[in-house]
């Protein structure tokens, strides 16, 4: 492990902070390499989503820094981070329900001044069902399809880093597997992925790096496969 600070594509180091007086994150560090998948797992209330929000600038940090592609973005707002190449898919309320699938994608591309039809085409190739349903309201789709719209919307800005907050929450196991397959495909196009997951076992299977957070601090950090193999991690976090 010879990674120094600033060398990773996303480098969120020593993040400390919370919403009110008390901190939720304690010296938490998350790094993602180019085109790789990093997964944050941990028990309920471990601060997983909070850590992700901190990376995206939705939480004021008392300490630590966030750099993307070597550029320090610690002081930027979420909107500015989107322009810098971050894409974020919230866990809930992540589509525009009374707008069509295609309009959802268009809104994803709102900040782009150039022609985004190619990107939309790529999204449709990645999620063929969306092309089929492109004139339907997103609110009328099934849970899994809605998640695809949400991911597709975030991809419309051509992000360099895509962040997913529990993308498989509330979908069936079959749909979950399919979503993970798609996420791997996204990563293959060179986009880095940072993902919070409840389904730790399945998520670690596709992860290049896994972060186990406990009470807002890094507990274990290793490759997904290594964490899966670690008996201590298996026993405490993966249910045997």
């Amino acid at each position: 492990m010879s990674r120094g600070p600033g060398m990773s594509f996303l480098d969120a180091s020593n993040m400390t902070g919370g919403y009110g007086v008390s901190d939720i994150l304690h010296d938490c560090t998350l790094r993602v390499e180019k085109g790789q998948i990093a997964v944050i797992v941990g028990p309920n209330g471990a601060g997983k989503s909070t850590a992700m929000k901190a990376v995206f600038g939705m939480l004021k940090l008392r300490g630590g820094s966030v750099t993307l592609d070597g550029e320090d973005i610690t002081a930027l707002s979420p909107q500015e981070r989107v322009r810098k190449g971050m894409g974020f898919v919230p866990q809930v309320n992540n589509v525009f329900p009374t707008m069509t699938v295609e309009e959802n994608l268009e809104m994803g591309a709102y900040i782009r001044e150039d022609d985004y039809r190619d990107t939309m085409e790529q999204v449709y190739e990645l999620f063929p069902i969306l092309r089929e349903k492109r004139h339907q309201h997103a609110g009328e789709l099934s849970g899994g399809q809605r998640q695809q719209v949400a991911v597709g919307r975030a991809l419309m800005t051509k992000p360099k880093l895509l962040m997913l907050d529990e993308p498989t929450a509330g979908v069936s196991p079959i749909v979950m597997d399919e979503l993970f397959d798609r996420i791997i495909e996204v990563a293959r196009t060179g986009i880095s992925i940072l993902m919070v997951e409840q389904n730790a076992r399945q998520a670690l299977e596709i992860a290049d790096t896994g972060y186990v957070l406990v009470q807002g601090a890094n507990k274990y950090t290793d490759t997904g496969a290594a964490l899966m193999a670690d008996p201590e991690v298996r026993r405490t976090f993966l249910g045997g």
Partner: peptide
């Protein structure tokens, strides 16, 4: 229109609209 759609998006989901740079 782009502006019209952005208005509908804002009405639909304010947070996501802000996230999308509207």
């Amino acid at each position: 229109t782009r502006t019209g759609k952005s208005m509908r998006a804002y009405a639909d989901n304010e947070d996501l609209a802000l996230l999308s740079g509207i």
